[in-house]
């Protein structure tokens, strides 16, 4: 037992792991968000259609580029993909007025057009992760013209489930307007607390897990990198949060075709591009039925669902993803490129 604490102390004396290290340049910046283009491999591109990664609004983008050898982005770049990623940045107080339309239509639309222009193509592969996938699916329904394929990774589309988050947001006592009026942007601490409540014993379990493998440097590096990411959150723009809760969580408007982006109705059946939907069996944040429901709603004839074991983050990041999930997505894109 004592040895474990010594091993842990030895690891803690080392510098923290470097996160988000794949070289990239900023090709567009607007308000707080930036569009990153990862440096292409020296051997040149093997795939002409670029990939645009749309991460969640409330987490940092680098979960998809966690650390060397545990990075989806690094893996894609090494296989000759032209990879772009949106970094949403940190909203300031004035961003409380940012709407769903600003983010989903204007910002994502701009990212898509800039990426297409720089890569010299008309269409790209769009991948949305978690809430980023919800933004991506809404964008693809309203502005399908530049989307070659849509990949949704642990993406909530149906919001009426029996999970804690769904129940909490639908409880009568919770007044989302009062919350947004009171705080402006919804503080990340509030949202992180809600996520912790999904597994109240998680922090104790993490501590035991850390002690259990304290001498395994590779495990500890990955663990600490993930913890760095997990504690590096951003607040949710107020107006956008209100729409998210009132229309998506409470009304389940996306699934029922009632959601609107400004004047434009968002109809999931308008999505006709090839689609890959990835769900995870033990996802406590986005229960898999919430993510899988999109399969029944979109009109794509070429649509596939990949159901994997693992949780919301744990299944995306580690080395085992490099043998299962990542190649599955890359093969999906390569096959559709070949058919185009």
């Amino acid at each position: 037992m004592i040895e474990r604490f010594f091993a842990l102390a030895r690891r803690m004396s080392k510098p923290p792991p470097v996160v988000g290290a794949t070289p990239a340049s900023v090709v567009h910046a607007e308000n707080k968000w930036r569009l990153l283009r990862y440096d292409r491999r020296p051997a040149g591109l093997a795939h002409q259609t670029p990939v645009l990664l749309v991460p969640s609004l409330i987490n940092r983008h680098y979960v998809l580029d966690l650390m060397p050898e545990k990075s989806f982005v690094e893996w894609l770049v090494a296989r000759g993909h032209d990879v772009y990623c949106i970094d949403w940045g940190t909203p300031s107080d004035e961003d409380r007025f940012l709407t769903f339309e600003d983010i989903t239509d204007r910002y994502i639309g701009r990212a898509v057009r800039v990426a297409c222009r720089l890569s010299g193509v008309d269409k790209l592969h769009m991948l949305g992760y978690c809430l980023g996938g919800t933004l991506a699916v809404i964008h693809a329904a309203v502005r399908p013209e530049h989307i070659a394929t849509l990949t949704l990774l642990a993406t909530p589309v149906g919001f009426h489930d029996e999970g804690l988050l769904s129940r909490w947001t639908r409880s009568r006592g919770f007044d989302v307007r009062a919350l947004v009026d009171g705080v402006g942007n919804v503080p990340w601490q509030l949202m992180q607390s809600a996520f912790h409540l999904l597994r109240p014993t998680m922090n104790v379990a993490k501590a035991v897990s850390m002690l259990d493998r304290a001498w395994d440097d590779e495990f500890m590096d990955g663990f600490l990198a993930l913890e760095t990411w997990g504690n590096d959150n951003v607040s949710f723009p107020g107006a956008c949060y209100r729409t998210y809760i009132e229309e998506l969580y409470r009304d389940d408007a996306l699934v029922h075709g009632r959601f609107k982006l400004g004047p434009n109705p968002v109809r999931l059946e308008d999505i006709r591009c090839p689609a890959l939907v990835v769900t995870f069996e033990h996802d406590a944040i986005v229960p898999w039925p919430s993510a899988a429901v999109v399969m029944d709603k979109i009109s794509s004839r070429d649509k596939h669902r990949l159901h994997l074991s693992g949780g919301h983050v744990g299944a995306v990041v580690p080395k085992k993803a490099a043998k299962g999930l990542w190649p599955a997505m890359a093969t999906f894109w390569a096959d559709r490129d070949a058919r185009a």
Partner: peptide
């Protein structure tokens, strides 16, 4: 859930 929501809303 109900009292927690009500408490948060009152605070806000």
């Amino acid at each position: 859930l109900e009292p927690a929501g009500t408490w948060l809303s009152m605070m806000m």
